[in-house]
Nucleic acid binder design. Structure first.
Lengths: 223, 223
DNA sequence: CAGTGGATGGAACGCCGTTCCAGTCTTGGG
DNA sequence: CCCAAGACTGGAACGGCGTTCCATCCACTG
């Protein structure tokens, strides 16, 4: 065995807010939203639950910090010389992809939207709307509508990820829902039955930008 | 005192799924989302937690049932001879008002949207889109976009209700946020600062239908 | 070299959803 | 008319959660 060369550091790597948030993100990604526990986190960090509270006030703040950590990397890409529409699409898609990779981010954003990350998004969207020459009086409405839509999709993606959690792959899941739709009562659910096929074959990402474009069209179509 | 005329019923009013769901709705309305507890529910129903499980499989189903109970009353109003746009607006507004009165419904809908209530809404919206002569291939996209937007607003309303919970009235709350926005860094948050005034003075309901109209405009604006 | 305070981590508290089960009441078949 | 069977009740208990408490430790400072 190795000789005890020096008295070991207090910890190999001291606890810190960043290390805790990092471990929380890993835990959320691997075990899911319900898997983030102060006990599990403590075990992963080789410490006790109490120590974590020295660096973080509670679970709410921890979740907010984890969300910020993920979103910060995706919103980083700044201005390009794209058209305002393209820039908004790109911004929204960045968020979409982040949520797709980390579904719990969707839950968190939809749950407490007035946090810092959505403020970043709101600001970026707003600037592009200004570039689109949206009248000042309509800017808040337009930006809010885009935000609401994005948050709605975020929540739904998170919900779908939650629902499909077992071994089932995404296609299976979609297929199951589409089949259930197709089996609905023909009188009461005529429309839903009718679009079951589109549900089965649709591409989430493409649908998402299509929705963004719908709103952008509405915004730019002067009445 | 009254004489014991007959042996008392097992309970004055027997437990039933409906009575349990009703009590759950009352609890959610009065004490909030965190106040719905099987113990609190049992106390309100003068029974023990175990008895509730005879009628309801668990908290998830209870929340779903409570949500359905509330939404069912609002989606009840059926077809009129309004234009499709007006009908969609009315449908969405009905949902909005229900969520405004019961913020926990917003949380629930945004959290598990593939449940029955949102299917009702989806169907109704879809039929109106058909009436609008939206091309079949675009119907799923259009209906989904409207749903996502509605769910996004639902989640935000619930979040705001959660955030403002103390004694603060809505105007105060909005004022506080608007003031915070106005105090942001002028370089990093130029747009947000700019619309802080619109945030302060906006009407949630009006903004909501404005967003619906934006999407409807996008849907009906053939490219 | 003493002591002071930032940092640690294990134990404990109170509450939750859920399960278990010993009972009670109702009912319908013999 | 009785009594087994089963629907239904409600209190106790289980395991796990977020959070708090606190005895302890280590790196500094004077």
């Amino acid at each position: 065995m190795a000789t005890r060369t020096r008295r070991p550091e207090r910890r190999q790597e001291p606890l810190s807010r960043e290390s805790i948030v990092g471990a929380a993100v890993e835990l959320l990604d691997t075990v899911g939203e319900g898997g983030l526990t102060f006990r599990a986190l403590a075990e992963r960090l080789a410490t006790g639950p109490g120590a974590i509270y020295w660096h973080v006030t509670g679970k709410t703040e921890l979740l907010a910090a984890a969300t910020e950590a993920v979103v910060a990397t995706t919103v980083a890409g700044d201005d390009t010389d794209a058209t305002p529409q393209e820039a908004i699409r790109a911004l929204a898609l960045g968020l979409f992809d982040a949520i797709d990779a980390h579904p719990w981010v969707g839950t968190q954003l939809a749950r407490t939207p007035s946090q810092a990350p959505m403020l970043w998004v709101f600001e970026r969207i707003g600037r592009r709307l200004q570039a689109l020459r949206v009248p000042e009086a309509a800017q808040f409405t337009a930006a809010s509508a885009l935000m609401s839509y994005i948050l709605g999709v975020a929540g739904q993606n998170a919900a779908n990820a939650r629902a499909a959690q077992p071994g089932t792959d995404r296609t299976e899941f979609l297929d199951a829902v589409a089949t259930a739709w197709a089996a609905l009562d023909p009188d009461e659910y005529a429309f839903t039955r009718n679009v079951a096929g589109q549900l089965r074959e649709h591409d989430d990402r493409a649908e998402f930008v299509a929705g963004i474009d719908l709103i952008l069209t509405g915004i730019t179509a002067r009445r």
